[in-house]
């Protein structure tokens, strides 16, 4: 079965996963890199131009070597210096990593890039593309040989809970026994779902937003029944926000803020 992420279990027993890159993004990154090599070649030809006036032979020899060095060495050097990223990969937020989650070794960078010659056959990376489509870890042949995978290097930030929860009155607070019961009955998955709905609410279609929070609030209302005076006038969305506040922020002082 095709995996969508690379799961790594560390010797300490910690499990983490990295999302695998798809063939289309990789192909786009490659086209950017191809453009980079072409641009670099044009620049090199311009810089070396005056040399041709002194010796045409030497000028053409150096250009031939620069072309091969750029076309073969660009990706190797970039991936080694920039931790598995070329300009194209950086632009599309991709990164080459060791398939065990370890740091890339120089020989891995060399081998995966040399095997491009086979992956690129017969044209436009058809062999490599087929391997990415068919392989479990979306690896081209060079990745298989070098023990590498290409992952999506998404920027990760902590969610801003302060903006979401702080500074708002929570009418459900003040019933300690019901709060405790709520925390006891809400599962981590339910709590995460509610928090995620709140974090993404501005991106939802208005009708879908109303329906979603109606369903979630209804579920929480069935778990614990708060006195009518504390829930009167609360919209479903406010109810869910208050539940999330109770579940994720257990300190009493949070209620007063």
């Amino acid at each position: 079965m095709k995996a969508s992420s690379l799961t790594v279990r560390t010797p300490e027993g910690i499990v983490f996963s990295l999302p695998l890159a798809g063939p289309v993004t990789r192909f786009l990154a490659w086209t950017v890199d191809l453009a980079c090599v072409s641009a670099a070649m044009t620049v090199a030809a311009g810089i070396l131009g005056p040399l041709g006036l002194l010796s045409l032979d030497l000028h053409q020899a150096i250009l031939a070597i620069v072309y091969v060095a750029l076309s073969i060495g660009y990706a190797m050097l970039a991936e080694w210096m920039w931790r598995g990223q070329t300009l194209g990969k950086w632009l599309f937020r991709l990164r080459v990593v060791d398939e065990q989650g370890l740091k890339l070794r120089p020989e891995q960078v060399v081998v995966r890039n040399l095997l491009r010659f086979v992956d690129a056959l017969p044209m436009f990376y058809l062999v490599g593309g087929a391997a990415v489509f068919l392989g479990r870890r979306a690896q081209r042949l060079g990745d298989v040989a070098a023990g590498t995978v290409v992952v999506r290097a998404l920027p990760r930030r902590e969610p801003d809970l302060e903006t979401l929860l702080a500074g708002k009155f929570n009418s459900l607070r003040g019933h300690a026994h019901l709060e405790a019961r709520l925390r006891q009955r809400v599962t981590p998955d339910e709590a995460a779902l509610a928090l995620r709905a709140l974090l993404r609410r501005d991106g939802l279609d208005p009708a879908a937003r109303v329906d979603l929070f109606h369903d979630i609030a209804g579920h929480f209302r069935r778990l614990v029944e708060f006195p009518v005076e504390t829930t009167e006038g609360l919209t479903d969305e406010q109810y869910v926000r208050n539940v999330v506040d109770i579940v994720f922020r257990t300190r009493g002082d949070a209620a007063a803020s």
Binding site: R156, R157, E158, P159, P188, D189, A191, A192, R196, L199
Partner: peptide
């Protein structure tokens, strides 16, 4: 907990 944002941040 299974809040995906924080989990993703810590995993990365």
């Amino acid at each position: 907990s299974s809040e995906p944002e924080i989990r993703g941040y810590l995993e990365a």
